[in-house]
Write a protein that binds this DNA or RNA. Structure first.
Lengths: 347, 347
DNA sequence: TTGAAAGCGCTAACAC
DNA sequence: GTGTTAGCGCTTTCAA
């Protein structure tokens, strides 16, 4: 920048003003400076700019595992939205370890990110909650719900898992299934809501709670083990609901191993659309949602917090806008993986 | 840091030395400083540190579309490796637009990233090549090959698509297929290599080149359209090779629409393993590779360049290590999606 | 071994 | 409208 100023024969501050679009600059000055900038191919140093301006135009995104299609779609939506407003995204994987969540959040703070997008590994990790309580920047939780002050101070985008699952289980019940087996992941909001949706459907029909639920990790191994459990029970499940694509993978592996026909011997519903659910034969019914929009809305919530910031008495920036929680819909899509039970339950 | 120094009653420079592990610090000093750091919960500002040290411990990753499983697995591998050496990853999507590639690379430069991990949208975009020619930091290309000086100055991790495809097509030929239809993406290295592998297999058996190839974009739409083309040809293909998971999606959609049985009416091979290829009935043969290792090796190449840097005469850092190119294997996995043609070709 | 001082590249008062 | 100056938070000579 020094060079640009010299070449243009003006002060550095003038160059700075031109480049940052300050209103009080004469056209002549703008001309000279821009000419010098072009001839030198000058690019401002965002690092120095950030240090001085006290904002980095960067956002930290903590995700469990970016290789999971669900999460990478969220990341895409978020990155695209952030980029459209000139923010960059720092991405890190927590490997579903709360301890990594905290260390990454700490690192992002040291990098002075302007905000945090969090898809946490746990909703009740004390370390994480304590750390988040001390975080100064806006936070947006993605499909997570935190208790206490932290939960109240953070924005969030949530999916309405409950209503989609209510429809899904309702569909199975209406087909005649009574022993429905549900495979869930970690005890977080999405699991609780799905379970509630399941209960809703039974209750709405005045049916006894003859379902079975197996909780575990959102991993294929658990999907497979849970499927075994549910199929080997005294009263085997006639329909399975997999609470995520990883669980579906495990469930399908077990189903195939046993030579069961999906839709024939066993009905199946999964959560979140992936190419497998659409192209499997028979196609697999899903509770789906717009995952990309989930990421996009999360970024938008964060941006709206960032863009409504004012300098507080202590010199720190504080958002003037209250945190928001957005609930995005889910939709049950019936497909041939759901059919009446092979041996119909007594009506 | 000022506060820490005051509390400990020492100079800021001493605090700095303690924190950055300078050898010449007395144990007493270390004690005092660390006590102050702990009591204040001080966290160094990485931004200021970066500005001064002239390194950011950050790497820019430009990817076409992170929601693509292939690319998100690469990203996971890369991020994990970078993180293990304390680097952070800035991620951006080019949406397969060369123009976005360049603008993102430019942005990353302004953010003073220490290096670039690039999965470019095109291998021959003049703007991109010109820009890369001016980039000072180490670059690692991911499954891309650039011509000229730029290509020589950059490191790269490449997959050996050719040999895996040679085996795949060889398998189809040995089953009796002669009209093999190949669906490829953009004209980049991975497409060229796959085509070469195809040719290799025909030539190795002394067969006439009775294959058909359709090039296009790595998108489901192209996969579908190409499948139509290949199946509606005067001499319809009896086996299809899809050069990527997006193409497979489109191809399968068309195959199902036509009511064709994979493995029965039509043999099928895809590239890169996804849950669909493993769990489809029948399972789909693939040319697979360790995508996570691809990302990991890319990050490792970059790190080895970064860690062997020295200050040049002009004050800039230059790596003393020559760029490396690593070739990673692919492996053909035969599966029931490949079977003898319905109407066997004349032997 | 430690401290004082300069400065990374930029912006924001403040003065002219 | 433009220039001068101070300083963001840190590291790194240099001198003591």
């Amino acid at each position: 920048m020094r060079e640009v100023a010299d070449l243009a024969g003006v002060a550095m501050s003038s160059v700075s003003r031109v480049l940052s679009g300050h209103p009080d600059v004469s056209p002549a000055m703008r001309q000279r400076v821009m000419a010098a900038v072009d001839s030198l191919g000058y690019q401002p140093d965002l690092l120095a700019q950030s240090l001085r301006r006290r904002e980095t135009l960067s956002v930290g995104f903590v995700v469990g595992d970016i290789s999971n299609p669900l999460q990478s779609q969220i990341a895409l939506g978020a990155e695209t939205a952030l980029r459209s407003r000139n923010y960059s995204m720092l991405l890190t994987n927590s490997e579903n370890e709360p301890a990594l969540d905290t260390s990454h959040i700490r690192l992002f703070q040291q990098r002075r990110v302007d905000g945090l997008l969090l898809s946490l590994a746990a909703e009740d990790d004390p370390q994480t909650l304590a750390l988040l309580g001390a975080v100064e920047t806006p936070i947006v939780l993605i499909d997570r719900e935190l208790r206490g002050d932290v939960g109240r101070r953070a924005s969030a985008v949530l999916s309405d898992h409950r209503s989609g699952m209510r429809d899904a289980v309702g569909h199975l019940l209406d087909l005649g299934h009574r022993r429905i087996g549900m495979i869930l992941g970690q005890p977080m909001r999405f699991s609780r809501e799905r379970l509630e949706g399941l209960k809703d459907a039974y209750e709405a029909r005045g049916l006894a709670p003859t379902y079975a639920v197996v909780e575990g990790q959102l991993e294929p191994r658990h999907g497979r083990a849970a499927t075994q459990t549910l199929l080997d029970a005294a009263e085997p499940a006639t329909a399975l609901v997999a609470g995520g694509n990883q669980l579906l993978n495990g469930a399908l592996a077990e189903i195939q191993q046993r030579g069961l026909r999906v839709g024939g011997d066993l009905s199946l519903v999964s959560c979140d659309e992936i190419s497998l659910t659409q192209l499997y034969q028979p196609p697999i019914a899903v509770v789906r949602r717009d995952t990309r929009a989930l990421g996009r809305r999360a970024a938008e919530l964060l941006l709206s917090q960032l863009e409504s910031q004012e300098e507080g008495d202590d010199g720190r920036m504080r958002s003037t806008r209250a945190p928001e929680t957005v609930l995005l819909p889910t939709e049950f899509v019936a497909r041939p993986s759901c059919a009446p039970p092979a041996a119909p339950a007594a009506a």
